[in-house]
Amino acid sequence: PPHWGYFGEEGPQYWGELAPEFSTCKTGKNQSPINLKPQTAVGTTSLPGFDVYYRETALKLINNGHTLQVNIPLGSYIKINGHRYELLQYHFHTPSEHQRDGFNYPMEMHLVHKDGDGNLAVIAILFQEGEENETLAKLMSFLPQTLKKQEIHESVKIHPAKFFPADKKFYKYSGSLTTPPCSEGVYWMVFKQPIQASVTQLEKMHEYLGSNARPVQRQNARTLLKSWPDRNA
């Protein structure tokens, strides 16, 4: 695939022109990320939540040149309306890709799931400055220094759900991958409540990753849903 990045002539504004298979990055009408506006999100009690069936697994890390990615072996999944989506990997963006009321958080984590038909569901977790994050600290002790080479640490076990906020309310919308080829039809769930990481942790992650966030995209005709009724907002 053609080389792409976050700056200059390979940056997000040019992704759609770098290759024919990236054209959706430019022409798509349901692109991600978006600016989350709580006051215009539609409250609902009928939005299906998700059941989590993750396992604690050995740490498999790779810096793929665009992000820090943790690969997950088969057997961790979520269910939405009884439909199974397997957890493939999770990765990080600094600063956050989704905004809230026009503002970016220092970091965002994406847990990428796929069903048997190839449909994607992504859970996004926003990070804000606060207490040190123990699960993140475990992972940060093993940041790969070589590009595109998976490193396996058998003795280090991480349970992905340890990153989840206490409050499981979430925003839901139909979007896309936030990297080329920007494929659409992705089921996005963004937790309302950010989780905490220390200033030092967030600065170190940003130093390691650089700025790897795609700018927010137009919402167009899409409706942003929230998993709680308006009266309890």
Rank of each mutant, 00 (worst) to 15 (best):
A137D: 11
G116F: 03
K26E: 05
G28T: 03
D51G: 10
Q193C: 01
Y173M: 09
A124G: 13
I62D: 05
P20Q: 11
W4Y: 15
H91S: 07
P160L: 14
I80F: 03
G75C: 13
K26G: 00
Q69G: 11
F103P: 00
F7I: 12
M109T: 05
I125M: 02
F127M: 06
Q193G: 02
Y14F: 15
V186K: 07
F103D: 03
P1V: 08
G102D: 01
Q89D: 10
Q39F: 10
C182G: 06
Q39H: 14
P106D: 05
D51F: 02
L147F: 01
G210N: 11
N133T: 09
N81W: 03
N35H: 02
N71C: 03
L177S: 04
F127K: 01
T178H: 11
L147V: 03
T40Q: 02
K60I: 10
S32M: 05
K138T: 15
A41Y: 02
Y187I: 12
Q201T: 12
K172C: 04
W4H: 08
K162N: 04
T57H: 13
F22V: 13
I123W: 00
I125H: 05
P106H: 10
A124M: 02
H98E: 07
K172D: 04
N104F: 13
G82P: 12
T135K: 08
L136F: 08
S183M: 07
H113L: 00
V52F: 13
F103C: 04
P20M: 13
L18I: 14
H113P: 00
R84E: 12
G118W: 01
S183A: 15
M109G: 00
T40G: 01
E108C: 05
E154L: 15
S46I: 15
D230H: 00
K204P: 03
L120V: 11
I80Q: 07
Y14V: 07
T57V: 15
L18P: 01
G130S: 06
G175N: 08
Y53R: 03
C25T: 09
I195K: 09
L87E: 03
K204Q: 13
N104M: 07
E86S: 10
E86F: 06
K114C: 10
K60S: 12
R218H: 10
F7D: 12
A233Q: 11
A166P: 00
K172S: 10
L202C: 08
L18S: 08
H83T: 10
Q99F: 13
Y6V: 14
G82Q: 11
Y90D: 06
Q31K: 05
N119V: 06
K60A: 12
L225W: 15
N133A: 13
E207T: 13
I80N: 02
P20H: 07
A41T: 08
I62C: 09
K192C: 11
H66R: 09
F7C: 06
H83P: 00
F22Y: 15
E21C: 08
R84I: 11
A19D: 14
L59A: 04
P12R: 08
Y77D: 10
M109L: 13
H3M: 07
Q13W: 00
F103W: 01
S211I: 12
Y105D: 14
L59H: 04
K172A: 11
